[in-house]
């Protein structure tokens, strides 16, 4: 339990043991490995993930095979409205145990839909696992395109992967050459403005959440929050699908950094909310 990271049961550092999964995943491949594990063991019959076949402009898809999941690996720093597909997943796709991955804001929406399901007939009880990713901010696709094409001078066709970390936006190219970076102070103006009222960095409503911050490169920090999340991760570890190391609870680049970033986001957003209120602008109401 911690104020800055939300309620949790346990924090670990982990990565997928399957090198194939890890190869094109964003960090430790936790999300993809978990969904593949869920499908292969009958815990899930499909998952909603963000796919970007057309050059990084993501949209949600229902993935029902390992291949589908692998195709959607990696972070897209643009909005993928994953909740939009939830109903389809249980309607025409006929799923009964749906895995869901989303940003913190999407999990608030999802948990609200489950607790107050007036518009979600026969849907809530079909959500089998909720994985959250850490999220500092997001960009709409057009903004990302400007950043990549005009600031990093890379053609969208050549982009292999993008990442945000260590104060920079990193653009990796398909030709394997050195990544191009754009300092975050240049990217700020392109952030989605509605992200500035968002106080959740670590997906506090997930079964478990994951992100890179707090763990070494190629590894992920995993915050286990619910009984369902814990059972799931424990099984994956027992079956050898995840390798783990204790989370770095003391070091500067470890969990203290995660807490610092999380608190920073909360403070900044609460400020924005206050200023909006002062200006007579509406803010999301907490009832």
């Amino acid at each position: 339990m911690s104020k800055s990271l939300g309620n949790y049961m346990e924090i670990i550092t982990a990565r997928a043991t399957d090198a194939d999964v890890r190869s094109r995943s964003q960090d430790g491949g936790i999300v993809s490995a978990a969904f593949i594990y869920g499908i292969e063991n009958g815990i899930l019959d499909g998952s909603i993930v963000a796919s970007a076949p057309d050059k990084h402009n993501p949209s949600p898809v229902v993935a029902i095979t390992k291949e589908d999941i692998l195709k959607a690996r990696g972070t897209k720093y643009s909005i993928s409205p994953n909740v939009a597909l939830l109903k389809s997943a249980v309607r025409e796709h006929g799923l009964e145990k749906v895995g869901f991955v989303g940003t913190p804001c999407q999990l608030v929406a999802l948990r609200k839909a489950i607790k107050y399901p007036l518009g979600f007939r026969h849907v809530g009880d079909k959500v089998g696992l909720i994985i959250g990713i850490f999220c500092m901010e997001n960009f709409n696709y057009q903004s990302m395109k400007i950043l990549i094409e005009e600031y990093a001078n890379v053609s969208m066709d050549d982009v292999l992967k993008t990442d945000i970390g260590k104060g920079k936006l990193w653009v990796y190219k398909k030709d394997g050459s050195e990544p191009i970076t754009v300092p975050l102070k240049e990217t700020h103006i392109f952030e989605q403005k509605s992200c500035h009222v968002c106080t959740d960095y670590t997906s506090e409503l997930a079964d478990f959440s994951t992100g890179s911050v707090g763990s070494p490169d190629g590894w992920s920090t995993v915050i286990i929050r619910t009984k369902r999340g814990k059972e799931f991760i424990d099984k994956m570890i027992a079956d050898g699908k995840l390798e783990t190391q204790p989370a770095d609870l003391e070091g500067k680049g470890g969990i203290p950094l995660l807490e610092k970033l999380s608190n920073g986001k909360k403070e900044k957003s609460l400020d924005t909310i206050r200023i909006r209120e002062e200006n007579g602008l509406p803010v999301p109401k907490l009832l």
Binding site: K87, S88, A109, A113, G119, N140
Partner: peptide, 19 residues
Amino acid sequence: RVISQSLCMGCGTCAAACQ
């Protein structure tokens, strides 16, 4: 209330809910 107030972050909940 939401988009025109820069509050919409694109979760897609409204789209799924709309009957």
